[in-house]
């Protein structure tokens, strides 16, 4: 299934945050979204799930198959959230509830969306923990987030996002809060899952190194607009827009593929 964002505009209190964003995510492809802080990358991701901040006004269209997520009634939107479109947040130290077990956080939406029983949900959760390579998945199931390292927490967050077999995954700076040594592992995991499960992934990042490592397509945002989009190789090697060039020039090491 493809996710089509067309002419997405968003403003908060009269201030324009997004000024007509166009993006297209397709099955089995990782679409990297780059840009500096405040360019609107995260807001674009949040808009897909209808998680915009208090008082935000949105127009345009976000099509998932035949449906426009922006006009979906709240109940149906809730079925899409977690069920068809899932999200991984930047900092796994804050995006997991500190007082609930990993198992609870892995199974509650499965049971809600898929109507699974307790035992079924647990079996699937343990399988997912194994898939994201958490050692001793059966024991990990009953533990709390503070008993895991940052990299493991982000793997758990990815397992949570994948629990209901979504078709689209929005990863908002999924490696920014992690040590460099763990980043590569999490990115490899994301790439692998994308290929294996045919996920459409939107990878929001300000790190062009991350982008060049895993993205198939790259879009560059500036001031609420997508200024350049295309296959990774062409955007990163022959940038057409002055802003993309300046982003690339700002890298200490411009050996990008």
């Amino acid at each position: 299934m493809t996710l089509d964002i067309t002419g997405l505009k968003m403003s908060i209190g009269g201030k324009d945050i997004l000024r007509g964003v166009d993006l297209r995510l397709s099955e089995g492809r990782v679409h990297g979204l780059a840009g500096e802080s405040g360019s609107g990358k995260t807001m674009t991701g949040l808009a897909v799930l209808g998680l915009l901040p208090h008082g935000a006004r949105v127009s345009g269209a976000i099509r998932l198959g035949e449906r426009d997520l922006l006009t979906l009634p709240p109940k149906e939107l809730n079925r899409v959230r977690g069920g068809e479109v899932a999200m991984v947040f930047q900092d796994p130290a804050t995006s997991l509830h500190p007082m609930l077990t990993i198992g609870k956080q892995l199974t509650e939406h499965m049971r809600h969306h898929l109507g699974l029983g307790k035992a079924e949900a647990k079996a699937r959760a343990v399988e997912l923990l194994g898939k994201v390579r958490i050692p001793g998945p059966a024991e990990a199931y009953g533990r709390f987030p503070h008993q895991f390292s940052g990299g493991m927490r982000q793997r758990i967050a990815i397992a949570i996002a994948l629990a209901c077999s979504p078709k689209v995954l929005i990863a908002d700076e999924p490696t920014t809060a992690l040590d460099v040594t763990v980043q590569a592992g999490v990115l490899r995991l994301l790439r692998g899952l994308c290929d294996e499960l045919g996920l459409a992934v939107l990878l929001v990042t300000h790190d062009l190194g991350v982008m060049s490592a895993v993205a198939d397509e790259v879009s560059v945002m500036k001031d609420g607009l997508v200024v350049e989009t295309g296959p990774r190789a062409s955007v990163l090697r022959e940038p057409g827009h002055a802003y993309t060039r300046s982003l690339l020039d700002s890298l200490p090491d411009t050996e990008l593929t």
Partner: peptide, 19 residues
């Protein structure tokens, strides 16, 4: 963040409030 994450999981409002 974890409340936003719970919303992103599509949990019902009541569950998010209490749990």
């Amino acid at each position: 963040d974890y409340v936003r994450a719970a919303r992103a999981k599509g949990l019902p409002g009541r569950t998010i409030l209490f749990r």
